[in-house]
Design a protein around this nucleic acid. Structure first.
Lengths: 228, 228
DNA sequence: CCAAAAGTGTTCACCGTACACCCATGA
DNA sequence: TCATGGGTGTACGGTGAACACTTTTGG
């Protein structure tokens, strides 16, 4: 631990740098995102994105992953830098530059996340029923959603929402949720299989009380393929 | 001016924040970019991206525009945030987070840029014949190029390279340079005109000693349209 | 009249879209 | 046997790609 009276001096003023992470998942056919309830001022008690200050010797990506793990218990997810937000008075305490990330979690690995010293509570909210959020986090969330939807089209990013083994029906449901549209089953299967991004595991997966379906897996685990 | 002995103290160490800008243009059918020769250590005398430290009350976008104007004399260009680079030891002086931007200049507004106190010289280099660059600027340049080429496909970003009035032949040459490929004249015209992003000015433009061509202009000046 | 860029349509292959029925399972 | 999701093929239309000749101008 650092001695509490220690200070760090610079010839010119330096901003603080934080990371904030927009974590998406799909639950019950709806897009959700993870917010924490702030334990400390400013905006104490308000919902906000998980995130926090960059350590002086820490890589930015590592900071995003660490803050996410500390505040929500989630680790080892797909994490991508989104945009850097730095409007001068976005934080009332001091000048803060936030490097925003977004993350996707597969829908079988959704621990009901635990709170930490910075987060009084952690909860999933449906994307279309978000509470008011602290700072400029609404703008960060909007940008993350825009990026997510744009990437659906030309990358295999949707696979990041899937568990290790999944069926084509489940994958189609994820696309339908994200695109907010219904898709034709035969066309969907043809297109996805022709992209060569998933492979048959040989196993079967039983979802309801109905006919079991073939189980597939992503061809390259943890990678997002750019299509064409 | 700030008194030279003044310092700024924080309870936790803060990184410095800079912006760096990758400025592209097209000259003589080749993609070029603008580098400055560093007037001061570190990397004194080496070529680098124009950029510099963020003022404590300055918006990040404004910082990129300001540094660009100060070091190169260029202003009022298409400027878009690219990515934030912050590997711990990328700058030997202290921890520096660089918010990178890229900019596009139309090929009629290429002032041979002037040097300033931070830049001993400023010059355009062909993209395929770049000198060694300072810091991690080679990685920033690579990422900017990747973004530029990707955006060609689904946006009207190429129009940013064009002067106010231009011909279809000139526009096609820009696409050919960026894609490093030849395009069919008839197909190109059909596609571009169907996108409805340029309009006939009614005027003509004489390029060589040959038949004059219709002059077009971008339908929305200074905007980048997302196609589809 | 020659050189050089401007301007202009049609054909074909491929891909995305629309569309309906039988199968396997558990209750 | 019924309800529910799993699994499969074909026909059509639109879009992108290939392709050649005439026009206008300056020298």
């Amino acid at each position: 631990m650092r001695a509490p009276e220690q200070t760090f001096s610079y010839r010119y003023p330096h901003p603080a740098v934080t990371t904030d992470v927009v974590v998406f998942t799909i639950r019950e056919q709806r897009l959700h995102l993870l917010l924490i309830q702030r334990a400390n001022p400013p905006f104490q008690g308000q919902w906000a994105l998980p995130g926090g200050f960059l350590d002086i010797d820490e890589d930015i990506d590592a900071c995003a992953a660490r803050e996410l793990a500390e505040e929500t218990g989630l680790s080892d997810l797909y994490l991508e830098q989104l945009y850097t937000f730095g409007t001068p008075r976005r934080d009332p305490r001091e000048r803060v530059i936030s490097v925003a990330y977004y993350a996707l979690v597969s829908n079988d690995r959704i621990p009901e996340p635990v709170a930490s010293s910075d987060a009084a509570a952690v909860a999933w909210f449906p994307f279309d029923a978000l509470p008011d959020t602290a700072f400029d986090h609404a703008a960060i969330i909007a940008k993350a959603h825009e990026r997510l939807v744009a990437k659906l089209d030309y990358s295999s990013i949707a696979l990041q929402f899937m568990p290790e083994h999944f069926t084509l029906g489940e994958l189609q449901a994820v696309y339908e949720t994200l695109l907010n549209d219904e898709l034709d089953k035969r066309n969907f299967r043809k297109r996805i299989l022709s992209l060569d991004i998933i492979e048959d595991t040989g196993e079967q997966k039983r979802n309801g009380k109905h006919r079991p379906a073939r189980a597939y897996r992503a061809r390259r685990p943890n990678r997002v393929e750019i299509i064409k």
